[in-house]
Amino acid sequence: MTTYLYEKDLRQMKLLILESRRHDAVVQEIATTLGIKRQQLRKILIERCDMILLENLPARCDAARETDDLISQSLGIPLITQAAELLTREEGARIRKGVNVQIEHGVPRETAILEAKTEILELIRV
């Protein structure tokens, strides 16, 4: 938890940004891909992002969505790394590679993706 020395607590203002129609749709989309509640993702975003990045989240997601890699899409990696900057690109690529390796070793696709999701969640939790 961040402590505030002289700055005002900005969490309420950040929540107001996320309540807008387009922002809400994007948050819902990422939360569904990761399999967590919207409120949990909101909390993570509020802790990790500054206000201007939150405002720009829908536009950044629009720009990041243009990928044809199905596994990345089902994990929401472009949205988490490129748009919301919750993970670095390298971490995103590493997780993506890990899923590929597991599938090659005969692990079912769904199980591999589920494991990768848990890994992502552990990395972005605050």
Binding site: S20, R21, R22, I52, L53, N56, P58, A59, R60
Partner: peptide
Amino acid sequence: LEIAIQTPSIMNIQVCAH
């Protein structure tokens, strides 16, 4: 009933800051 406005300054300030 429902409205959302996305203005260009959002994108430009964000890219400027980051």
